[in-house]
Design a protein around this nucleic acid. Structure first.
Lengths: 151, 151
DNA sequence: TTAGATGCAAATAGTTTGCATTTGT
DNA sequence: ACAAATGCAAACTATTTGCATCTAA
């Protein structure tokens, strides 16, 4: 299992954190994910890769990564467990299919402008944003409806 | 304890839900809050008002209210428990101050256009979206830095 | 070498469920 | 009156902690 040496790894090191196997593995799992995983899913995938990594360590990683802004726990639906959204350096956001769960990423978002307008109008100083659309992916949109929709 | 007869109560009734004491109390607590409370805080306040209301009912209310879009569970910081943010009637989004945690709501978002463009371009069918900006509220932006920005 | 990080498993929290009873309509 | 909702308490799930050991630097 090779751990892609992305900037995040550098950031970890520069912040004085050891580049341990557990951390690299969790990071790897996150970076190879759709961008949205619950703690349970992460736990699961990490253990698939290396069953010797303890649950506690995974949570500790998640906590560290949240603190380092690698990731942000979010509530997508009313589920009990938060989804950890990997905060990308670049600006790509996603569309989550509410039926099959597929995540479609897109980069172009006009939010830079919007952010500036908000800063201007509200006096805030914005640093980042999270944009997610919910709906049906092309496949599910084409498939015959199975349940009621909500707007 | 009088329960302010806001539209939400009507909405409950119209959706065919009974206006029970538990529901009205939880709603009341939410509506008299700063706008974001954790389940534990809600539980707590509800019991302060009426200790006979069970925890389960509070969770059931929270669930119902989430489903009715009265409230949205959100992660403000990396805390374990979600904060239930009371959603105003209109379609709106928010800016979360990463320093003091205040939530500033705004309504105007050009996402309708963006959504249409995405539907067109990607073949998806969008139903909703979540937009959150992170940054500093006017007060925090103005205040002298108190601690390091990054750990 | 040495402090920081880990894994384990037990302890805690947070949330849900089943069911008899109560309550809103 | 009747179905929906409740309260209780037990069942569950998710997360954290203490501590001896291990490992990255």
């Amino acid at each position: 299992m090779e751990h892609t040496q992305l900037p995040r790894v550098q950031r970890l090191r520069e912040a004085g954190h050891k580049l341990t196997h557990a951390r690299l593995t969790v990071l790897d799992v996150l970076e190879h994910s759709s961008g949205h995983l619950t703690s349970t899913e992460i736990l699961d995938r990490v253990n698939q890769v290396d069953a010797s990594i303890g649950r506690a360590s995974v949570f500790r990683c998640l906590d560290l990564f949240t603190r380092m802004s690698f990731v942000r726990p979010t509530y997508i639906d009313s589920s009990v467990t938060p989804a950890y959204v990997l905060l990308p350096d670049g600006h790509h956001h996603h569309i989550i299919c509410t039926r099959c769960g597929v995540v479609i990423e897109f980069e172009d978002c006009g939010l830079g402008d919007m952010a500036h307008m908000l800063e201007d109008r509200l006096g805030v100083k914005l640093a980042g944003h999270l944009l997610e659309f919910y709906g049906l992916c092309p496949a599910c949109a084409a498939a015959p409806a199975a349940d009621s929709e909500d707007d």
